[in-house]
Design a protein around this nucleic acid. Structure first.
Length: 142
DNA sequence: GCCAACGTTGGC
DNA sequence: GCCAACGTTGGC
């Protein structure tokens, strides 16, 4: 049974377009040094889907990604306790869903994005996922 | 660029 | 094991 997540990235460091450029192999989601975020990645299964969110610039969900490798040690960390999954880009959203959109949508009032803006890898509830995609007007192929 | 919120570190 | 100090994130 598929779970949903949200991956946050500063687009001037690593954007959704950068992930698209990595192709089907995707890219390891390295650099996470937060236990909650790491634990979320440990809980991910192959095929789980995620919202790709641009923080700071845009502050919006711009695309959908998929987990293509289970959690493994982060090659950029000196300590093997830091793990990460690999993700690849799957689709763009038709219309980006901004943080403001999420804040004013009552059905998203419990969303982690709205309530804990600092967590960089977050779980997304099934119904929240549906609402976000509805606000996005669906997805389109890459 | 500021600062609030949060997480981590380290002294006690 | 508490908590003050510090560092980082990310919205504004």
């Amino acid at each position: 049974m598929m779970a949903y997540w949200l991956f946050k990235s500063e687009p001037d460091v690593f954007s959704f377009d950068d992930l698209i450029a990595k192709g089907d192999k995707g890219e390891q989601w390295d650099g996470v040094r937060n236990y909650q975020a790491r634990n979320n990645m440990r809980a991910m299964k192959l095929g789980d889907r995620g919202l790709f969110y641009h923080s700071n610039i845009g502050k919006e969900v711009v695309g959908i990604c998929e987990v293509v490798a289970l959690a493994h040690p982060d090659s950029t960390a000196d300590d093997p306790k830091w793990e990460c999954v690999d993700i690849k880009a799957v689709a763009r959203v038709v219309r980006p869903v901004t943080l403001d959109d999420a804040k004013v949508e009552p059905r998203l009032s419990n969303m982690v994005l709205v309530n804990n803006s600092r967590l960089s890898v977050q779980p997304v509830a099934d119904d929240e996922w549906d609402v976000v995609l509805e606000l996005a007007g669906g997805t389109r192929a890459l």
